[in-house]
């Protein structure tokens, strides 16, 4: 085990349901690692095992060199955990909330005062210092919960669906905050359903389903390994309604699987090639005289990967080639 977060053969069973089925994990320091999967995939169970809230039935995991089985208390000192569903204490002000958790970590009073001010500034809750926690908006509570994970300056953050229930502005703010935390040297393991955001944010991802990792690594690498098809949308300037000509042209090109005319007047192209191939396709279209107004991916890469990998009959992925010094790696 070499990464700051590592797991080997994690298994967790609830009654007859196998929630995590032999998961291996290796996350290098400084990564923002995304855990992607449908509901019931085992993301939350994995995070709860890493957060020492669940004991695995088999296997072990280490965070910062401490085993979640043998030294859960040492693990708790190097990680901050934000659950997907969390509550707030009644009758507690914002600063008292952070003060309480800082006391739990045994932080001395003089350091607590300074740290609370810094954290409230970091999560942009400075003006709300004396506000009661229960009166904060959902987004503010989310930021406060994130701040509580930082009171002991942990090396690793485990964030379970941190953006759920947030409005778009709050999501953008949270994303910026996570980037800032990464720049401070934190390693962040984040699970989310909002795939485009994860794609923008994460340095690596793992797609997980039925307790197993189906694909892992950098999004571009996974895409290249899987050769997953991309969907492009092209808007072509034509006279009248004569879109059938361009559609037929696209359909006849190499690596194009499908080409359909959509109701908004665009052509949707199912493309089974890489970025080089897409560039060649566009160049060929322009070269053939098609008047292309726009040509862009219809969905994010991660979404395509996710749909492809978690499909009932998914692409069977070959194990990733060993890359010396590779920062991350998942295997099942």
């Amino acid at each position: 085990m070499s990464g700051i977060v590592t797991a080997r053969g994690l298994v967790k069973r609830y009654d007859r349901t196998l929630a995590v089925a032999g998961l291996d994990l290796d996350i290098a320091e400084g990564e923002i690692f995304g855990l992607v999967g449908p509901n019931g995939a085992g993301k939350t169970t994995t995070l709860r095992i890493l957060a020492t809230l669940l004991v695995p039935d088999a296997g072990d995991a280490e965070i910062g060199g401490a085993s979640v089985r043998r030294n859960p208390n040492d693990v708790r000192r190097v990680l901050g955990f934000m659950p997907d569903v969390f509550g707030v204490y009644d009758d507690m002000k914002v600063w008292e909330y952070l003060d309480f958790f800082a006391r739990c970590y045994g932080i001395p009073a003089d350091r607590r005062r300074r740290m609370i001010g810094d954290l409230l500034e970091l999560v942009d809750l400075g003006p709300r210092r004396d506000t009661y926690v229960q009166s904060l908006s959902r987004g503010m509570q989310q930021r406060l919960c994130l701040a509580h994970t930082l009171v002991h300056d942990p090396q690793v953050l485990l964030l379970d669906e941190p953006a759920s229930g947030l409005d778009p502005r709050a999501r953008v703010e949270l994303r910026e905050l996570l980037r800032e935390l990464r720049s401070l040297g934190k390693t962040i393991l984040v699970s989310s359903h909002i795939l485009p955001e994860l794609e923008e944010l994460c340095t690596s991802v793992a797609i997980i389903d039925r307790g197993q990792v189906l694909a892992h690594g950098r999004v571009a690498d996974i895409e290249r390994r899987l050769r997953v098809g991309a969907v492009f949308r092209a808007r072509v300037l034509v006279d009248g309604e004569a879109l059938d000509g361009p559609r037929t042209w696209f359909a006849g090109q190499p690596d194009v699987v499908t080409a359909e005319i959509l109701s908004d007047g665009t052509i949707e192209i199912g493309f089974h090639g890489d970025d080089e191939g897409a560039a060649r396709l566009l160049a060929a279209a322009v070269g053939s005289g098609l008047r292309i107004v726009s040509f862009a991916r219809a969905a994010s890469d991660l979404e395509e990967l996710f749909l492809q990998v978690t499909a009932p009959d998914p692409v069977v992925m070959a194990p990733p080639p060993p890359v010396p010094g590779a920062p991350t790696g998942w295997r099942t």
């Binding site: 320091e29 400084g30 060199g65 000192r77 008292e96 006391r103």
Partner: peptide
Amino acid sequence: MTAVAHPPTRRPFGAARDVVNGIVAVGVKE
């Protein structure tokens, strides 16, 4: 920061002190 964090060093009576700190933290909050 090092690649792998080291577990915290043990302090004398650390466990007892942690329990007392915890009791104080929870007690003050309550």
